[in-house]
Simulated scan of single mutants.
Amino acid sequence: MDSDTLARIAYLSLLIAAVGGWALVEFRGRLGFALRTALAWAMIFVGVMAGYGIWQDIDQDLRPRATVTEAGEIRVPRAEDGHYYLSLQINGKTIDFLADTGATNLVLTEDDARAIGMNPDTLVYLGEARTANGSVRTAHVTLDEVQLGPYSDLDVSAWVNRSEMDISLLGMDYLGNFRIEIDRKQMVLRR
């Protein structure tokens, strides 16, 4: 163990000793009540953790994942919110995108740019994009490798958005590499 882990264990031990000492003094002579209270808090904690785990499963249902068929088609189910979400490998890191056929470019959030090894603070934001929320500043970048399912592309043009975005956008610059078929339940990408 490193010194940071040992320090955390020591801190946690002191915290447990302090709370435990307080509980012994507070509930002296009422040990049964103290145990019931501790059990109730433990059950609340377990319930919160179970809720968090279930939420992770629900989140997967809200944003179902794309599948690749044997023929090389990428089938993207429509999410409950009506959008299509894809996960791409960029420079070896998984980045989630909203497929946006109304967007021109592949646009990364600053957080996603950081995740793939860029420093958004050092980028030059000379570009400007007009969005539904007004004009935003953008920086042009080139992505070494972008992989979607079995398809890999090198030196892909992209933009990093200076404004707040919830998720990166996969626009027609990249989606145009595919034949796109959309129905009410899914989007199918073929090359």
Results as ranks from 00 to 15, higher is better:
154 L>H: 11
143 L>T: 05
62 L>D: 07
37 T>N: 05
127 G>P: 13
33 F>M: 09
149 G>E: 05
81 D>W: 09
86 L>S: 12
4 D>S: 10
155 D>W: 08
49 M>R: 12
176 G>A: 08
156 V>H: 03
51 G>Q: 10
149 G>V: 05
161 N>A: 02
116 I>R: 02
26 E>V: 13
49 M>F: 14
101 T>A: 09
60 Q>L: 08
30 R>Q: 08
177 N>G: 15
141 V>L: 06
131 T>H: 07
93 K>Q: 15
43 M>E: 12
69 T>K: 00
30 R>N: 07
60 Q>F: 00
173 D>F: 05
82 G>V: 09
32 G>A: 13
39 L>Q: 06
93 K>S: 11
9 I>M: 04
92 G>I: 07
41 W>K: 10
153 D>T: 04
61 D>R: 13
147 Q>N: 11
184 R>Y: 10
20 G>K: 12
188 V>E: 09
19 V>N: 12
22 W>A: 10
68 V>A: 00
185 K>P: 02
72 G>I: 03
83 H>L: 06
82 G>H: 13
190 R>G: 02
178 F>R: 08
181 E>W: 05
26 E>D: 13
112 D>T: 02
108 L>T: 07
82 G>P: 09
145 E>S: 13
117 G>N: 04
84 Y>G: 04
173 D>N: 15
128 E>S: 08
1 M>E: 07
11 Y>W: 06
79 A>I: 00
49 M>I: 11
78 R>D: 05
92 G>H: 05
113 A>H: 04
81 D>R: 03
88 L>G: 01
123 L>Y: 03
90 I>S: 00
182 I>Q: 12
116 I>A: 03
165 M>V: 11
14 L>P: 00
126 L>S: 13
86 L>W: 08
108 L>I: 09
